[in-house]
Amino acid sequence: TRVETATETAWISLVTALHLVLGLSAVLGLLLLRWQFPAHYRRLRHALW
Score class of each variant (00 low, 15 high):
Thr1Trp: 10
Thr1Gly: 05
Thr1His: 12
Arg2Lys: 12
Arg2Met: 14
Arg2Cys: 09
Val3Ala: 04
Val3Ser: 02
Val3Leu: 11
Val3Met: 04
Val3Glu: 00
Glu4Cys: 09
Glu4Val: 13
Glu4Ser: 13
Glu4Thr: 13
Glu4Ala: 14
Thr5Lys: 00
Thr5Asn: 02
Thr5Met: 07
Thr5Trp: 00
Thr5Val: 03
Thr5Gln: 00
Thr5Gly: 01
Ala6Gly: 12
Ala6Phe: 05
Thr7Arg: 14
Thr7Leu: 12
Thr7Lys: 13
Glu8His: 00
Glu8Lys: 04
Glu8Cys: 05
Glu8Gly: 05
Thr9Lys: 11
Thr9Asn: 09
Ala10Trp: 02
Ala10His: 06
Trp11Ser: 02
Trp11Asp: 00
Trp11Gly: 02
Ile12Glu: 05
Ile12Thr: 10
Ile12Gln: 08
Ile12Trp: 00
Ile12Gly: 02
Ser13Asp: 02
Ser13Thr: 13
Ser13Trp: 14
Leu14Asp: 03
Leu14Cys: 03
Val15Pro: 03
Thr16Cys: 09
Thr16Ser: 09
Ala17Cys: 10
Ala17Phe: 08
Ala17Arg: 02
Ala17Gly: 05
Leu18Met: 10
Leu18Ala: 02
Leu18Gln: 03
His19Trp: 03
His19Glu: 05
His19Cys: 04
Leu20Phe: 12
Leu20Trp: 02
Val21Met: 12
Val21Gly: 08
Val21Lys: 03
Val21Ile: 10
Val21Pro: 06
Leu22His: 03
Gly23Cys: 14
Gly23Asp: 05
Gly23Gln: 04
Gly23Arg: 02
Ser25Met: 02
Ser25Gln: 09
Ser25Val: 10
Ala26Tyr: 03
Ala26Val: 10
Val27Lys: 01
Val27Gly: 11
Val27Ser: 08
Leu28Gly: 00
Leu28Asn: 06
Leu28Tyr: 09
Leu28Asp: 03
Leu28Trp: 07
Gly29Ile: 12
Gly29Met: 14
Leu30Lys: 04
Leu30Tyr: 07
Leu31Gly: 03
Leu31Met: 14
Leu32Ile: 07
Leu32His: 12
Leu32Val: 14
Leu33Asp: 01
Leu33Ile: 09
Leu33Met: 09
Leu33Val: 09
Leu33Trp: 06
Arg34Pro: 01
Arg34Met: 02
Arg34Lys: 15
Arg34Ile: 06
Trp35Lys: 15
Trp35Tyr: 15
Trp35Gly: 15
Trp35Asp: 10
Gln36Ile: 15
Gln36Ala: 15
Gln36Thr: 15
Phe37Arg: 04
Phe37Ala: 08
Phe37Lys: 00
Phe37Met: 07
Phe37Asn: 07
Pro38Met: 14
Pro38Trp: 07
Pro38Asp: 15
Pro38Arg: 14
Pro38Gln: 14
Ala39Asp: 15
Ala39Met: 12
His40Gly: 13
His40Ala: 13
His40Cys: 11
Tyr41Asn: 04
Tyr41Val: 14
Tyr41Asp: 06
Tyr41Arg: 05
Tyr41Ile: 11
Arg42Phe: 11
Arg42Val: 11
Arg42Leu: 12
Arg42Met: 11
Arg43Ala: 14
Arg43Val: 09
Leu44Lys: 01
Arg45Lys: 13
Arg45Leu: 09
His46Leu: 09
His46Asn: 11
His46Ser: 11
His46Glu: 10
His46Met: 06
Ala47Gly: 07
Ala47Cys: 09
Leu48Met: 11
Leu48Thr: 02
Leu48Pro: 01
Trp49Pro: 03
Trp49Leu: 00
